[in-house]
Design a protein around this nucleic acid. Structure first.
Lengths: 163, 163
DNA sequence: GCTGAAAGTCGGCACCT
DNA sequence: AGGTGCCGACTTTCAGC
């Protein structure tokens, strides 16, 4: 599927305001509502727009701790990867988990209400998972940028941009 | 502001589908549309719901590289933090940046079209920033979980949940 | 604080350019 | 491809419970 400059503009707007009305969106990209809606539907059906979500403010709920945790596994435990992966999905504190290159095997993003909650997560859940050898916690002291935004400059140069 | 079990349900639904219609939402939480809408507006105005966004599928745009980059700075350069922070905001490849505890000073989440693009970002942008001493790239090989979802269990126990 | 109805607005479709 | 117009559905407000 080919996307042009107007599609890029639509994607930019929707990434900033997922609930913008089709009429407003159409105005911003200088299109009629029907033409605009057709493009949005095409972007959704092609999978380029994956989904729409509400973002909550973690601090408003008293979630004080945000962290990145590097996890190293030992390989002498059976089904260590399957067990660990399944556990990750079930733990609400884990909002992201990735297999990465480098010294650790996994990188987790973990949120907790406070340090006590965080501590109990690490000791009672993470460390008790068979195969977990080493855990390195990197607590977030300050968030400078935290966005899901894929800027037009990033999207361009691929997927056949015309305009 | 106090939230109850119905608010938690509303937040859970909206975090999964930010464009759900008020009528559907009202049905799911067993409320009339007008009562439901009033709760949603209250959650928005209190700041608990920060915003609504569209999530794009990075792979659909050919963004092959996802990574976490640990950056260590030297302190003998003037305004190193201010300069670096400003640069981070302007680089589209950087979708997240955090000051963390541990060995590195910053953790960045960086997205790029391919390894060539990634390499040029690290060499031409990151390394050329005054004060950058060491860079450790952790390329994401597999994404097991990547969500912004704050589960009800996480939100509970704070903000005075009643029901 | 919830319900129900009324009014304004929007999304979705058919049709034309 | 994009634009116009119409109809049904939805959002939103307000009176009443």
């Amino acid at each position: 599927m080919k996307i042009d400059a107007i599609d890029l503009k639509i994607l930019t707007v929707l990434q900033q305001d997922g609930r913008v009305s089709n009429q407003d969106l159409a105005e911003q990209v200088f299109l009629s509502p029907s033409a605009c809606l057709r493009r949005v539907r095409a972007l959704e059906e092609s999978g380029m727009i994956a989904r729409y979500i509400a973002l909550l403010d973690a601090t408003a709920f008293g979630l004080e701790v945000d962290s990145f945790v590097q996890v190293t596994m030992r390989r002498d435990v059976e089904h260590w990867h399957e067990n660990f992966t399944a556990a990750l999905q079930s733990w609400p504190e884990v909002v992201g988990s990735y297999i990465i290159t480098g010294e650790a095997n996994y990188l987790l993003r973990v949120r907790a209400r406070n340090l006590k909650h965080y501590s109990s997560f690490v000791l009672e859940k993470l460390y008790k998972t068979p195969g977990v050898l080493d855990i390195r916690s990197n607590i977030v002291l300050q968030t400078l940028k935290d966005t899901q935004m894929l800027a037009p400059e990033l999207l361009m140069g691929e997927a056949g941009v015309n305009g």
